[in-house]
Amino acid sequence: MTSHPRLFSPYDEPMWSSIAAREMRLQRCAGCSAFRYPPGPACPRCLGVEASWEPIAGSGRVLSWTTFHRQYLSAYPPPHSVVAVKLDEGPIMIGSVKPEHVAALAVDRAVRMVYVAHPDGYLLPAFEPA
């Protein structure tokens, strides 16, 4: 059991800690106030390196979604669905969506973030219709 999945950069760790605490935070640029995702060393907008970790509202709108009908990972027997959401703070992020919510998905549909358990022991952001 782990508290987070593989980290792709040192900047990922605070984000996964905030997810584990069920209050997801993202870096917010001290210079231009832009939120960024995935976490990274500098603000893509202004290249500023100073940032604070701010909670996000967890609300956003659906951009798209897909359902896997083939098993690629042991944690996800098919059918398994994911949704791409444009967060109200700006960034786009991927989240899981439960099978019973897939039929309600539509482009621009409002969704809210919830937290679900991954079999490996960490919490994951997911989305459901708002």
Binding site: W65, Y72, L73, A84, Y122
Partner: peptide
């Protein structure tokens, strides 16, 4: 990959769905 979105096919599926 933590969400199971691992294949390039799935990225194109998202793109084509939209």
């Amino acid at each position: 990959s933590p969400w199971g979105l691992t294949s390039q096919g799935a990225l194109y599926a998202l793109m084509f769905r939209r």
